[in-house]
Design a protein around this nucleic acid. Structure first.
Length: 433
RNA sequence: CGGGGAGUGGCGCAGCCUGGUAGCGCACCUGUUUUGGGUACAGGGGGUCGCAGGUUCAAAUCCUGUCUCCCCGACCA
């Protein structure tokens, strides 16, 4: 993409409303714009990152055997009246009345709808286990949205729902997601600590929160540092129960629930860090299947309410969380897997014909090699270009100026380390390929 | 929902106390200049001062109401 044709309104100064670094950088790098409190417009680069994260989440869900579908954002109130949550949910739920005076709501989550779908479609244990998910916008009318898209009212969430005949099955489904989550976050280059959690408003007794480590996190964690030594990214195929049990045996608690006196981990094995919650998984049994009559026939022919669990990942929140974990004073530093583009090409002298011809040619070569490139072809000062490119945070930068052209070399910069090397065009193409 | 703060060109702000023709920096447009870390100079465009009432000869400024946004705290992917 040529920057001269791109919509990426960067801002030099810090917007006064942005308090945390990810919010500030997302506004400054032209990724988002606020529409109203807790509701954002996703601009081209922001959207690209959001989609890349969603793709990784999707791949890992699919790998775990889940089925993707798409439920609507607007739901009928009746389903929620059936489960009893229409009253329980309170003001956080955005309620809407349509032209026929029918009560509707903008979904904050989808347990009711998926349970309704299930009960209308599945009647026998032979169709279990079943795992259904979608990646859809949610709305929770938070009293005080803040931190940009990290705590917005409208947010993109992957929510998965599992259906099993009995507790053993449900637990297996739960563990499958547990592993899928660790894999997902590992692929994003994040250290995610699974913290034992209360099941909270959704109810149930088996629950973990996934907290990624970042200095600006909202919660303080205490955990057994042994868990960090697990190389989750390299785990493939089915992970045996033993490994899962081992993983889940590692101690990890939020500050409020951490009891220093009775902690099973000795002080020297304990680490403390700030975390951002990016995922939450629950087993909640028959809470909804009972109230909504989602039953299946077992092998004995008797109908039983189906055992369920639900599993959320805050996809839009992950964009912010990734920035919290990957930035410096100059801007964002994207991990390659989610970077809006892999490389930025800077033409230092757009008015110089030779320089521009060389840049144009290189740009076309990169495009035909399927390398995602953002080409700064604007007629602007070098300083402005460097600053913008650092702010946007692509993992690699190619810097082309008249000096280098004369010598037949390009500069290749690593955004994270700041290291610059001089390469010929061929060497560069090999490196990026 | 409790406490605090703010709404003035795209962004950041001053002006308000003490009413009297709306200003600064950045950004933007034109020209010249500069060219490896946000160049410099000159000229230019853009604002019913959140909205609605009220007081006054006169309101960004004073009064009342209202909306929105932000921050701290309690709650959430």
């Amino acid at each position: 993409m040529r920057l001269s044709q791109y919509f990426i309104p960067t801002i030099k100064e810090n917007p006064s409303e942005a308090q945390i670094v990810s919010h500030r950088l997302m506004l400054r790098a032209g990724m988002i714009r606020q529409s109203s409190a807790g509701i954002y417009i996703w601009l081209p680069t922001g959207l690209r990152v959001l989609n890349k994260i969603a793709d990784i989440v999707r791949e890992e869900q699919d790998r775990a055997g889940a089925n993707e579908l798409l439920m609507p954002t607007i739901q009928p109130a009746e389903l929620w009246q059936e489960s009893g949550r229409y009253d329980a949910y309170g003001k956080e739920m955005l309620r809407i009345t349509d032209r026929h005076d029918r009560e509707m709501l903008y979904g904050p989550t989808n347990e009711e709808m998926i349970t309704d779908l299930f009960r209308n479609s599945i009647k026998t244990y032979k169709n279990l286990p079943l795992s259904l998910y979608h990646i859809q916008w949610k709305f929770r009318d938070e009293v005080r949205p803040r931190f940009g898209i990290m705590r917005g009212r409208e947010f993109l969430m992957k929510d998965n729902y599992s259906f099993d005949l009995d507790f053993e099955g449900a637990k297996a489904s739960y563990n499958k997601m547990y592993v899928a989550y660790l894999r997902t976050f590992a692929r994003l280059g994040l250290v995610a600590i699974p913290v034992r959690a209360d099941a909270g408003a959704i109810g149930g007794d088996l629950s973990h929160e996934f907290q990624i480590l970042a200095d600006t996190g909202e919660s303080t964690l205490y955990y057994d540092k042994g868990i960090e030594s697990f190389d989750l990214a390299s785990l493939t195929g089915d992970i045996d129960d033993e490994t899962v049990a081992k993983l889940q045996s590692y101690y990890a608690m939020e500050e409020e629930k951490h009891d220093a006196d009775n902690c099973p981990v000795p002080v020297e094995g304990l680490k403390t860090a700030k975390g951002i919650e990016v995922g939450h998984i629950f087993y909640f049994g028959t809470k909804y299947s009972e109230s909504m009559g989602a039953k299946v026939a077992g092998p004995d022919g008797k109908e039983v309410p189906v055992e369920m669990g639900s599993y959320g990942i805050g996809v839009s929140r992950l964009v912010g969380a990734l920035i919290e974990a990957n930035h410096d004073d100059n801007g964002i530093i994207w991990p390659e897997v989610v970077a809006p583009y892999k490389v930025g090409l800077i033409n230092l002298r757009a008015k110089d014909e030779n320089c521009t011809a060389a840049c144009d040619a290189l740009y076309n070569k990169l495009l035909s090699a399927d390398i995602e490139v953002l080409y700064d072809d604007r007629d602007a000062g070098a300083g402005a270009k460097f600053a913008d490119m650092d702010l946007i945070g692509l993992p690699w930068q190619i810097i082309v100026g008249p000096k280098g052209i004369e010598k037949g070399i390009l500069e290749f910069k690593n955004r994270r380390s700041g290291e610059r090397v001089e390469l010929t065009e061929n060497e560069l193409l090999v490196k990026l390929g």
